[in-house]
Amino acid sequence: MHIPDSFIPLGQAVVYWVITIPFIFMSMKWAKNELDEMKIPILAALAAGVFAIQAMNIPIGMGTSGHMVGATLVAIVFASPWAGVLVLTLVLLVQGFAFGDGGITTMGANILNMGVVSGFVGYYTYVALRKSVGTSIAAFGGAWLGLFISAIVCALQMWFAGTFPLVPGLIAMGTYHLIIGFIGEGLITAVVITSIAKSRPDLLEDSFNAGSDRYNTEVRA
């Protein structure tokens, strides 16, 4: 879903940068307040993993492929969508400048779609679902919906840009990313979060549920 320079006119690309910069700024503020010596290795490992997995395009049929985005995964691990915005910003910077994956003028739009929209929708869907369906399914559902909604936003941007017609753009982007979201985003996120929950449950402890658990333990004690 990396938008190349040619797909959005410069004037509109600047608008997406203006919208996105406050989010990048907030993600840095999150880093300043939340990151410590203990969490930096986790952040670095996830960022490297997200970069690598984005190079692994999975065939989804119809002559199309797709890859994981990873913002929801990072947001769940750090219990904050700002972490997802931060990691995707770093990854997209390297992809854009070193590998020509996603434009430079359109990087604002790409950070907005893949970092902000997919991370926020994915994370808060996860939070909403977690108590009723459990961690694994909530992670799957959040990641899937996050990717799908970001593809819809991308289709709308393509329409504003005059690059795609509205309805065919929504149908094509929606269809492809429903499938990419199921396999590339939902399944991988669920597997990784489930294995972290098993091997390092303390990592996910900061999340919403743990807050009330900790409170209960303290009250009982």
Partner: peptide, 10 residues
């Protein structure tokens, strides 16, 4: 990795 175009390119 698949060399098919991604969702946006497709």
């Amino acid at each position: 990795a698949s060399s098919d175009p991604d969702g946006l390119e497709s």
